[in-house]
């Protein structure tokens, strides 16, 4: 099982997709939006093959599926033939696809295939995924023309940027990272589900990872905070050494202890 990211929110209006790009954009600009593209991340099983013995593959696949039929039923699957090609056993794609389908799985991609295999897969409307850099076959250029690179965007929440001073009594909440270019006054409170960056003086309270992200950090160029917190673990002004101010520091969580460290 791996994480992989692809543009997945499939359009519900098929004729718009079938038309050319220019058509699509003119339609989008004329009317209210019909569809939109978004990136999402899914966990999809990858089937790595070590033999071209199609009979044995069918048998073992069925055995695996029988262990958890509900889990595998109609599950998307990407098959990886890189290992086979390395050994010089180019497998017949249409037959392989048929075998996978018989076991109740839905093949949705091929990885590590040669030009001929990729072509065969595309004829069966199965997309081609590239393997990691360095191991791609020489005809990747052609593949790239067919399948665009997936958009890698791990977090869906955006970064919030604040350029005006955050005054006493003001509160800022960011669902992603928070970047502050102005001072944060005493009595102000800034919160973020992700990291907090303050390229100025922090005199108020800064709480990072407020939804429990223990990997969140606070970066600050002048730490004079009333309180700093990461995922609920906090330090108050009294516990923060007065020597940390006037220089760049980062704050991170080690176990349940906040560590304040200089950034050299």
């Amino acid at each position: 099982m791996i994480f992989f990211i692809s543009n997945v929110k499939l359009p519900t209006v098929n004729n718009a997709v079938a038309s050319t790009d220019t058509d699509r954009f003119s339609k989008m600009s004329n009317n209210s939006p019909i569809l939109e593209f978004k990136s999402g991340s899914f966990s999809v099983p990858i089937l790595i093959l070590f033999t071209d013995d199609l009979k044995a593959i069918g048998q073992q696949l069925q055995e695996k599926v029988d262990l958890a039929p509900e889990f595998f039923k109609n599950s998307p699957l990407i098959f990886d033939v890189q290992e086979l090609n390395k050994q010089g056993y180019p497998v017949n794609i249409p037959v392989l696809v048929e075998i996978i389908r018989q076991s109740g799985l839905l093949p949705t991609g091929i990885r590590g295939g040669n030009a001929q295999q990729n072509k065969a897969a595309l004829e069966l409307l199965i997309p081609v995924y590239s393997v990691h850099i360095g191991t791609t076959p020489p005809d990747t250029q052609k593949q790239k023309n067919i399948t665009p690179e997936p958009i890698v965007d791990v977090s869906t929440a955006t970064t919030t940027l604040i350029t005006r001073p955050i005054r006493s009594g003001q509160r800022i909440y960011a669902s992603g990272d928070l970047v502050v270019l102005a001072p944060v006054s005493a009595g102000a409170e800034i919160m973020s589900e992700g990291n907090i960056h303050i390229y100025n003086t922090l005199r108020g309270r800064a709480l990072a990872g407020v939804q429990g992200n223990t990997d969140a950090r606070i970066f600050c160029s002048d730490l004079q905070a009333e309180l700093i917190s990461i995922a609920g673990n906090y330090k108050i002004s009294e516990d923060i050494s007065s020597t940390v101010g006037k220089k760049s520091v980062q704050v991170y969580l080690q176990g349940h202890t906040l560590i304040i460290q200089d950034i050299v």
Binding site: P165, R167, S185, G187
Partner: peptide
Amino acid sequence: VRDSDRMLGILSSKSRRAEQGLEP
């Protein structure tokens, strides 16, 4: 100084200019 800071926060968030998205 702290009270002034608080007032500045109110100026930048609760004034007509802030509510209508005009120049602060």
